[in-house]
Simulated scan of single mutants.
Amino acid sequence: MAIKMNNKSSMVVNIVLTLSLLLIISMTEGRLLGVNIFGQPKTVYCSKVLGVQNGDTCFDIAQSLNLTAKVFNSINPGINCTDLFIGQWICISGVVI
């Protein structure tokens, strides 16, 4: 039993299938890159931390450890650099998996 479709229906089905395939591919690439759909790292394993001192900024800490902003932010995904407080733990060495 074959389903008969006109050209318009066939075109709509092809577009839906193509968009579904593109969505699946982009989600898979995100997982391979270690990010979820919101762009946050999946899992951070921190091997060394530093307690924030009076006057510290994210920029100063990253610069003193020769970390790029991208690396610093990836190992500290939930940090709010505009609202650091004394004693707050910041990851200064780690990996993102």
Rank of each mutant, 00 (worst) to 15 (best):
N54G: 01
K48L: 13
S47M: 05
S10F: 12
V49D: 02
Q40V: 05
F85S: 08
G55C: 05
D60F: 05
S26Q: 08
L23H: 02
S10W: 10
I24Y: 07
L23T: 14
N76T: 05
S10D: 09
G30H: 04
I61K: 06
P77S: 11
I75N: 05
T28R: 07
G51N: 12
V13Y: 10
M1E: 09
G34R: 04
S93Y: 07
F72P: 03
N54Q: 11
N36V: 02
D83M: 07
V16N: 00
C58H: 04
A62N: 06
L33R: 15
L67G: 09
I61Y: 07
N73A: 15
I92N: 04
C81A: 08
P41W: 06
V13W: 04
I75E: 03
M27S: 14
I61S: 04
T57K: 06
G94E: 04
I79W: 00
F85G: 01
S9P: 00
N54L: 09
S26W: 00
L84G: 03
V44E: 00
M27N: 13
P41K: 08
K42F: 02
K48V: 04
S10Q: 11
P77D: 07
I79D: 01
L22I: 14
V44F: 06
L19R: 00
C46R: 09
T28A: 15
K42S: 09
V95L: 07
Y45V: 14
N73G: 03
N7E: 14
E29K: 14
C91F: 04
Q53M: 10
A2L: 09
T28H: 05
L32C: 09
G87P: 03
T82K: 14
I75L: 01
M1Q: 10
K42D: 10
V12M: 13
V35T: 14
L19S: 06
I79E: 02
W89V: 05
S74Y: 10
G94Y: 09
L21A: 15
T28D: 01
S26T: 06
R31Y: 14
N7I: 13
T57Y: 03
G78W: 08
L65C: 01
P77K: 12
L21F: 11
L84E: 02
M5W: 12
M11R: 15
N76L: 02
M1V: 12
I25D: 02
S10K: 15
T28N: 06
C81G: 08
N54V: 05
G34E: 04
G51Q: 09
K48I: 00
I15C: 07
N14W: 09
I75H: 01
I97Q: 13
N80K: 12
